[in-house]
Structure formats: structure tokens, C-alpha cells
Design a binder for these strands. Structure first.
Length: 365
RNA sequence: UGGGGUAUCGCCAAGCGGUAAGGCACGGGACUUUGACUCCCGCAUUCGUAGGUUCAAAUCCUGCUACCCCAG
């Protein structure tokens, strides 16, 4: 009987994934990952509660379970980079790295050591393998599709992974959980950085980054207020600036982080031209298939998500080495250095890259 | 210390005798496996201050205080 190790988070999706695999006759083993030690804002260690839920669920399904600790790996391979990016004034996405380095690397290795041939998670994505090449496809539930977070994976990793709920809707997953009496059927979806959880992000960052106050100014230099450190803000941000009134009375948005002068530049109005760009240069391009969708330097059409859950944006892309040049058909709002842009062709997730710069004219490659 | 003007929520700002609009900020919630964005709800028994007129004042009158402008 083929053994499958399921990454159990204590949530509904991974629980139902384990349930489905068990029903399909696999030798299912549940494994809970603990990758972050701190308690949350309320002094509660959610990891402890989640671990209890995992145990309850596994008992309910009738499968063995274990816990494994990747705190060190998480810190070294994900969090260190996360902090370094913030220090550089960028806005990283730790979860895309977490998937590449932890869930589908450290954890996958662990699963294989347990004698499994493959692993499974509760991600809302699908795979197929035409011609023996595994591809990453969007989840059937367009509203929950999580392929964005898995764009950094390689074919070899995906070939070892199963995504039992990828063909279901969230509603169906909950319904199935309820029908089988899983104790987490009504548990609220978790949000926030994976393994770190929901918390006041600014307060959280203050535990790791210095607060170097500076001016908040308009593009023409008018001083409007004070910021607590550029790392604590991101492009397109509105809340938390503490500046109101003045000008035409509309809201203020972050349009630039001037590291040299330690000035946070803001502009007024959600439609400020400074908030939009059509072109982006992204680096560290990675392709699930192992190679770019088109020959070097040759433009190709596809769609892109500049952030999770953004509707697909039609773009023209061009790859040179690990650099990706993008020109969107429509201006894009607050495309942010450090964030991931993920490319698709139809249902297939091609891969993506990390935004480095933006402009209104194409970048020369 | 001569003249004129303005003082309404943290900021901007309606109100012009009939019992405090709105926007921004802020707080809470929703949405969300990143950060953001977005959406919903909340947010001045009180109008610089002390008196007066009136059935009734933020709105009229007087004193005081503060700030602004023009003159000196």
C-alpha cells in the first residue's frame, strides 16, 4: 500500500485532504509542522491548539500522526531572507519561500524518510502530467486558488505532491468535513504569514527591525507627518500613515520609499498617477517546467498576478536569463519590489519572479 | 493694546436663530495562507471662553483669550 504523508495544519483543508486519501485506500500518515515558537498577540500559542486539532482529526479519521519541528530551517531559509528584504526597503512574501524551502523541501524530505512515496497538502491547486511532465494548475475554486503561493516549486517537487482538495470548492470541503464529523469543519480559515499567524504586523516587525523615524512628504516636498521607519510601510498603503485632511481632502497613499533620504513619499487619491505603472522588471525568475515558456529575449503573451487573489492581468512578457520583463496591457496599481508576480497561461501556472523595479516604459534587457 | 479678520471632532470643513453635514485620520469588523488594497460599522448632548438677549443660539450682543492680516 502506498504511503502518503499529509502536512496537517489543523485546518479544514488539510484535514479533508487526509480524509480523502484515507478513503482512497492509501496508507496515510498525518504530520504537523511546528516552525515558529512565539505566542501570538494574545499570548496564545496557536500552534499548540492546532496540534491538538490535528490529533483530534487524525483520531477521527483513524490515521497515525506525528509532529516535526522545522523552526531552524524556517528561520534560516525563510525568515532571514524575509528580514533582509525588509531592511532593503522591499516588501517580501515569506509564504512563497516557505513553500519552496519548507513544505516542499524540508517536509518532503522528511516524508520520504518516513517511507512515503509522496506527500500531500491542503492547497487549492491541481496538477496534471501531460507527456510525463507535471504541471501546476489553478484550483477549481477560483476564489480559493493558491497556485500563486506555489509558483516557486519545480516539476520534481510537484511530482511528489498530491492536492486532494484542489478539485473541490471550499464549500464542498467544509461540507465533507461536517458530514464525516471532523471537529474542524467550522474552524475559521487561518490568515497571516504561514506558521506565524494572524497578528499586528507592525508590532511583529518591531521585534526584528529598528524604527528609524523620518519625514512623510508629498512629491513636491511638503512635510505632512512622521513615519517610524520605511520598512514598516509598503507601496500603495493607506492605513497607518496618520495623516488626514489637507489638500483635496482625499486619502493619502504611499507612492515611494526614499531610502537615501529616509523619506516616505505619499500622494493623494486612490487614482493618483504615481500609484500606477505598466512595466516591471522582475528577477529570480523561476519556471515550474524548468525552462522559460519562450526562447530568451522572445516576447510572449500570458496573464499575470502581481499579488495574491488579483484577477489575471493580460501582459507581454520577455525572459532573459533569470530576469523577467513585463508590460501589462493596463496600468497596474502599486506593483511592489519584493513581491512576487506569477504568470499563467490558461489554467497552467508557469512560474514567476520577484519584482525589482517598475516604470511606465519597458526596461531594456 | 491703531484698524480689520478668524476661532465648530486629531486634520480639513458645512452651518447664517430652531435644537451639530461631509471628507480625511483613528477604532472595530468583513475579506485574505505575504505585505497591501477594498468593503461595512463606529466616531462632537457639543461649537475658544465668560456673561447677556430669546420660548429656543454654533448661529445675535458684550467682555476676555488665542491666532492671522494691514498699518505703525
Amino acid at each position: 500500500m502506498e504511503r502518503i504523508v499529509v502536512g496537517m495544519s489543523g485546518g479544514v483543508d488539510s484535514s479533508v485532504s487526509a480524509l480523502l486519501l484515507k478513503q482512497q485506500g492509501y496508507d496515510v500518515v498525518g504530520v504537523f509542522m511546528k516552525n515558529w515558537a512565539e505566542k501570538d498577540d494574545n499570548g496564545v500559542c496557536t500552534a499548540t491548539e492546532d496540534w491538538h486539532d490535528v490529533q483530534d482529526v487524525c483520531d477521527c479519521i483513524g490515521i497515525p500522526y506525528y509532529a516535526v519541528n522545522f523552526e531552524k530551517e524556517y528561520w534560516d531559509r525563510v525568515f532571514a531572507t524575509f528580514l533582509e528584504e525588509y531592511r532593503r526597503g522591499r516588501t517580501p512574501n515569506p509564504d512563497v519561500l516557505c513553500n519552496r524551502e519548507i513544505k516542499f523541501h524540508a517536509f518532503l524530505d522528511f516524508a520520504l524518510k518516513l517511507g512515503a512515496t509522496r506527500m500531500a497538502t491542503g492547497h487549492f491547486v491541481r496538477t496534471d502530467a501531460p507527456g510525463g511532465h507535471t504541471r501546476l494548475l489553478r484550483g477549481v475554486d477560483a476564489n480559493k486558488d493558491q497556485s500563486y503561493f506555489l509558483y516557486m516549486l519545480k516539476e520534481a517537487q510537484l511530482a511528489r505532491a498530491l492536492f486532494p482538495v484542489g478539485g473541490m470548492t471550499k464549500a464542498q470541503v467544509r461540507e465533507l468535513a461536517a458530514r464525516h464529523g471532523l471537529p474542524v469543519s467550522q474552524k475559521k480559515d487561518s490568515t497571516g504569514v504561514c506558521f506565524i499567524g494572524e497578528r499586528n504586523f507592525r508590532t511583529f516587525l518591531q521585534g526584528f527591525l529598528p524604527t528609524t523615524a523620518g519625514d512623510i512628504r508629498t512629491e513636491d516636498g511638503r512635510m505632512l507627518g512622521e513615519h517610524i521607519g520605511l520598512a514598516y510601510y509598503t507601496l500603495g498603503q493607506r492605513k497607518g500613515l496618520g495623516i488626514g485632511g489637507g489638500g483635496d481632502g482625499r486619502s493619502w497613499f504611499v507612492v515611494e520609499k526614499d531610502l537615501q533620504r529616509n523619506v516616505l513619499v505619499v500622494a493623494q487619491g486612490e487614482d493618483s498617477p504615481r500609484l500606477f505603472t505598466r512595466c516591471a522588471l522582475a528577477t529570480q525568475a523561476t519556471w515550474i517546467a524548468g525552462e522559460a515558456p519562450a526562447p530568451q529575449g522572445e516576447p510572449f503573451r500570458c496573464t499575470a498576478k502581481y499579488r495574491y487573489r488579483q484577477p489575471d492581468q493580460p501582459v507581454t512578457a520577455c525572459v532573459v536569463g533569470d530576469t523577467l520583463q513585463l508590460t501589462a496591457d493596463a496600468p497596474q496599481r502599486a506593483v511592489t519590489p519584493g513581491q512576487s508576480v506569477v504568470l499563467y497561461q490558461g489554467e497552467v501556472c508557469l512560474g514567476g519572479a520577484i519584482v525589482d523595479q517598475t516604470a511606465n516604459e519597458p526596461f531594456a534587457l
